[in-house]
């Protein structure tokens, strides 16, 4: 596992305690997991995602991500209805390791209550939290 300094955390994202990120785009939100989370998991072998149209509340599990010997739940950083899922992760789950913020995105949602994002962390706060973990 890498030292935190060697990981990247884009400025334009918001981060959740469970290491998901969201990117707000014209009323919708894209969700994935952070560089820290993918590094902790190691080689990702499988990502289980919901179907388009399913609705999840903030904090609810929407899928799982698996490495060879571990499984982690994926939690909604904010609530909403799934409007798209990254189907390409089915064949290439390694994208989450290689490019967690772009090619490795997981789902896109239509937020129920966009203000829920206010409880999420910006990069600096998230980094502080990570330093507390190590």
């Amino acid at each position: 596992m890498k030292p935190i300094e060697d990981l990247t955390f884009p400025e334009d994202l918001l981060y959740a305690q469970d290491h998901e990120w969201i990117r707000m785009e014209n009323g919708s939100a894209v969700i994935g997991i952070s560089d820290y989370a993918q590094d902790q998991l190691g080689d990702i072998v499988y990502v289980e995602l919901p179907s388009v149209g399913q609705t999840f509340a903030k904090g609810e599990a929407f899928g799982t991500v698996e490495s060879v010997k571990a499984v982690s739940e994926l939690y909604m950083p904010i609530g909403g209805e799934v409007s798209a899922v990254n189907e390409s992760l089915g064949d290439s789950p390694e994208k989450v390791n290689q490019d967690p913020y772009q090619d490795g995105w997981m789902i896109q949602i239509t937020p129920q209550d966009p203000s829920e994002k206010d409880a999420l962390m910006a990069k600096d706060a998230y980094l502080e939290m990570l330093k507390g973990l190590s």
Partner: peptide, 11 residues
Amino acid sequence: VKRLDEVTAAR
């Protein structure tokens, strides 16, 4: 055999 590629086996 040496250590095996368990990642590809699972992917």
